[in-house]
Amino acid sequence: MLKHDSNEKGGRALSLATIAGHEVHVDDEGFMTEYDEWSEDLGKTLASNIGIEMTDDHWNAIRFLREDYKSEGVTATLRRVTNTGGIPTKQLFQLFPKKPAKKMAYIAGLPKPVGCV
């Protein structure tokens, strides 16, 4: 059983769980929920969990996402990663195949982007 320590109204249950030996908060899909619990080491583990081996290009995108979340308070959409982060959409689909927005958010320890575009 996951250890539930809070239940946000209408939201996903937040639980304590272990990633690579670190105790962190995750939602019921396994997305980390506490910004400050993330580290690049954890990011590397999260990436390998979903079959992605991190390269400089991957880190470039993930670091942009982390920084952008810190200033904006929401996870950047693909369009924002392209327009503001300067990483072409095509490249994002190569680096994080099929579902780049969700996969990047997962690796970066951020919530899934909420915007439609």
């Binding site: 272990t18 962190v24 899909e29 979903i50 099929k98």
Partner: peptide, 19 residues
């Protein structure tokens, strides 16, 4: 402190979305 389990890993349903 109780031991915690490994965090779940999202499947991203890669296989089904391919179809």
């Amino acid at each position: 402190m109780a031991t915690t389990i490994e965090a779940p890993i999202p499947t991203f349903e890669d296989e089904s979305s391919g179809e």
